[in-house]
């Protein structure tokens, strides 16, 4: 018999009550059950990083977590980055430095960088580049993503 479990996900401060099968991954819950399709789903086995979200402020691959494991946790997705119609410094930097072309990997990169900078605001440029090696991009060749994130990081440190 299929087990169904009642859980609550807090996504960008919004409460979502769900009744789900344990095998439902967090990314599928975010997209299909909660309608937040800003988080992309790529490889579905933890290689590409497109589905990166923040779970209690920590960057996680949402295809490598079951939704039931996120019960009661605060999840932040790309939809929650902009505040009061103002783009997040990372979003602005991606635009200014051409950090995206097709945009498929962009939500994952934004959440990865946002989370790493929140975890360690004084992170070195070298360690930040190592963090960015986590995710795949097939358009930009990475250099513009690195430029964008370093520019945003320096701006956020100065702010």
């Amino acid at each position: 018999m299929t087990q169904k479990i009642d859980i609550t996900l807090m996504i960008n401060g919004e409460r979502h009550a769900l009744s789900i099968e344990p095998r439902l991954t967090l990314v599928d819950a975010i997209r299909d059950e909660c309608g937040k399709t800003g988080t992309h789903v790529g490889c579905e086995h933890g290689v590409c990083g497109a589905c990166t979200v923040l779970v209690d402020d920590v960057p996680m691959r949402s295809c490598l977590m079951f939704a039931v494991q996120a019960d009661g946790k605060h999840i932040r997705t790309v939809e929650g980055l902009a505040r009061n119609g103002e783009l997040h410094p990372l979003q602005r930097a991606f635009t200014e430095h051409h950090g995206l072309q097709c945009g498929f990997c962009t939500p994952g990169f934004l959440m990865l960088a946002a989370g790493a900078l929140e975890q360690d605001p004084d992170i070195s440029d070298e360690d930040l580049v190592d963090v960015l090696s986590s995710n795949l991009c097939r358009c930009t060749g990475y250099q513009n993503i690195i430029k964008a994130v370093l520019a945003a990081a320096h701006q956020m440190k100065g702010a």
């Binding site: 960057p59 977590m65 190592d130």
Partner: peptide
């Protein structure tokens, strides 16, 4: 530890 997979994997 820095050689283990990637940052989000190491967080989990």
């Amino acid at each position: 530890v820095k050689h283990i997979a990637h940052y989000p994997i190491r967080m989990r």
